[in-house]
Amino acid sequence: MTRHLLSRAGQAALVLWAAFTASYVLLQLLPGDSILIKFQNPELGLSPQQIAEIRAHYAAGSPLADYVSTLAGFLTGRLGYSIDTGAPVVERLAEALPETARLASAAFLLAVLIAVAIAFAASYSRTSWLRGALLSVPSLFISVPAFWLGILLIQIFSFRLKLVPVIGGSELQQLVLPVLTLAVPISAPIAQVLARAIDHVYAQPFVPVVEAKGATRWWVLWRHVARNAVLPTLTVAGLTLGELIAGSVVTETVFGRAGLGRLTEQAVNAQDTPVMLAVVVLAAAVFVLVSLIVDVLFPILDPRLKAAA
């Protein structure tokens, strides 16, 4: 078990390194750069020669040496300086991260709740049209664009019903609409997989055996079917958790929240390479960490995997 865990951790480190390298190379290959974007404005009156001097000031030397020093910096926690604002990247991340963490974790919890509610209601309902209707909800959710949903929610709840103030309001009030916007699309795949897994488990021969013990429908669903259906769902839930960071770009922009998504959006507009690199590596780290957790959880939830691990 510990050996398995160690090898998984090693794999995770490898994935992180590959993500770092790939995004570093891609960002270097981008046409144009942040220095041009920042200093080419004619009003600044800088000559091409002066721009070249500024460039020399930022660049450290050969591309390989550059890569090695950046990698060393990442390993020791020095992520460099934002070209756009000059602030250390670590500071900008530290400002943005808590906002996004709050948004993302709340949205993930809500998404799981929505998914479980849909899947349970669908499998519990005996009327086939209701079941069909419930099962088509995830397809609807997944096809709703986040920016549109965000604007729609603001329109309805802030402008029409005036339930949530557009500006100001308590921390909780500010969180409600963005969380909803982010949660709805990611609840869809979780709900779909969970509903299918529940159907699959219901077809297993052990279900009638539990029923023959005199168990109620709820007992069967909660204690046996759901417990078995969690396994495939966990994998998908892990994947969507990683997607939250991508989702927060749109949501935070629409709701004007200062978070990781907003930071990404600004960094891309300004071609602020150090910030972009840090964001990509952070996202990769979240992905890797979550799948590591899922891996560890699996044998705990399904004893059959203990022998295999």
């Binding site: 297993q204 078995n228 939830l301 004893p303 059959r304």
Partner: peptide, 24 residues
Amino acid sequence: LRSVRGARIGLVPQDPANSLDPVK
């Protein structure tokens, strides 16, 4: 029927391989 199932009528199923919940 639940008051009868298990208490007054027991069932021995067909397929022992899959008739027990694998995670309990």
